[in-house]
Design a protein around this nucleic acid. Structure first.
Lengths: 258, 258
DNA sequence: TCGAGTGTGTTCGAAATAGTTCGGTTCCCG
DNA sequence: CGGGAACCGAACTATTTCGAACACACTCGA
């Protein structure tokens, strides 16, 4: 594989899933860690991504503040991957599903490109990209309309109206926070609106949230905890939260990363 | 094997697989590395592929939508640029405009990123990208929903419905063909639907079509020639067509490239 | 037959790419 | 807050690739 191609592929991946790990890329492309680091360095020099400890993330002009955050988001990739893997098992050929915006749902998307006759509705441009590039011809991908948020989600009245005309079997909802009091939350008012419309349009709701989301409260509530039919999280969640959630959510699934 | 044949084969291969290696081609065609390099250089000079260390890739490595979009946007670049420049003059700060999908409208988009308080509705992901990357904070960009065509346009019932709820001052419509009998046409049924919805939603219609579009008939008609309020084309158009159009279209604008 | 033009091969120093080692840093977890 | 594991980047080496320059073979028209 050409170095150039490898770099382009890495960039695609970063954009689709929000982050990559050096070790993961090295194994995948069969080159040394150092080579991957040099690739990341080259891409970072051109401002196409941001290097962090352990890998790289998308360059986010807005949230350049908290230094630990970006590094952490890369490190939770194992959790996200495990959650996505489990979520993918809920999908059957021919289903009509919805995917909200978010890095976990983007990860899930990559595991769904091989499902036959799938219909996917999403308000996330990166998620649509994953299917567009790697999907099967018998899959249908519908992008909802709307205006674009910094995280590449489409939101606003146009998005809500578009979603309102559709009816899906299953919604996979990625959230930014979950707590007993506020339920599932996001930091963006418009995105919460779009997410709520997705919930309305779907028969069943599957929430994807790694353990770090517990206790985090975004400005805007989407729905209460109990509204989810299934909640998939990872084993990093403490005992107390696990008990509370298992009493609140009809089906709580806890996965073990790696 | 003739050099010409070899180059054509190389080009096919690059387009099919996304990238080739010098060493691989040299072995395959039984010629020296240097000869392959010279072939690649010749192809790269014509903008048909991109040379990289070790081989060559498609012109826009990393984005898989090469065949639909990037390849075509080189053709008639001067004409398109001149048309886009003239079209941009029709836009005022604060306007709410729509841009259809197409290379000419993408060109126009680049000239509109500095217009204050502009609201832009488009069903083209590349056009939305232009504003997202280079636009002003006081601009609003609305992407219509829908499924994605090979040329990165969003079409289908979702797109039509989303467009139907909106009302714009001005629509810039890029077309694939125009003729007296068929009017403005595109090669894609669904795209024609979306375009027609855009026409419905807009107060005024400005069609952008370089002279090569004249006489070309796509499978699907959008609207008749006379439906346009303004048609902007270039001076490559022959006298006969010019006369006919000036009698049919309320306002015919002919620009001189360069 | 000559000579220009084209296509190809070879040689060789420079540049790009990739692997390894190693000392230092960062981060996680108890 | 301390130990251990993972990670980082600099430095060095080996390999591959690049491109300029020159040489050779062939074609074609004068």
């Amino acid at each position: 594989m050409l170095a150039q191609q490898r770099q382009a592929a890495i960039l695609d991946r970063v954009r689709a899933t929000g982050g990559v790990r050096v070790s993961e890329l090295a194994a995948e492309y069969g080159v040394s860690d150092m080579t991957i680091r040099r690739d990341l360095e080259a891409l970072a020099d051109r401002g196409l991504l941001a290097k962090v400890h352990g890998g790289a993330t998308t360059v986010s002009p807005g949230s350049a503040h908290e230094p630990g955050f970006a590094a952490k988001s890369v490190r939770q990739r194992d959790e996200k991957a495990a959650i996505a893997m489990r979520a993918a098992a809920l999908v059957s050929p021919g289903d009509a599903i919805a995917l909200s915006a978010g890095t976990t749902t983007a990860e899930l998307a990559q595991r769904l490109v091989d499902v036959p006759s799938l219909t996917v509705v999403t308000n996330s441009i990166p998620v649509a990209d994953v299917f567009y590039r790697g999907g099967r011809p018998d899959q249908t991908v519908v992008l909802t309309g709307g205006t674009r948020t910094p995280s590449d989600a489409l939101v606003g009245p146009v998005a809500v109206a578009a979603i309102g005309t559709l009816h899906l079997d299953l919604l996979f909802l990625g959230v930014h926070g979950m707590s007993e009091r506020a339920g599932y939350t996001t930091p963006n008012l418009m995105e919460a609106d779009a997410d709520r419309a997705l919930v309305q349009a779907s028969e069943r709701l599957v929430v994807l949230a790694d353990h770090t989301k517990w206790g985090t409260v975004g400005i805007s509530s989407i729905v209460p905890l109990s509204r989810a039919d299934v909640l998939i999280t990872d084993s990093g969640l403490d005992e107390e939260a696990r008990t509370l959630l298992s009493e609140t959510v009809p089906e709580l699934v806890v996965v073990n990363p790696q």
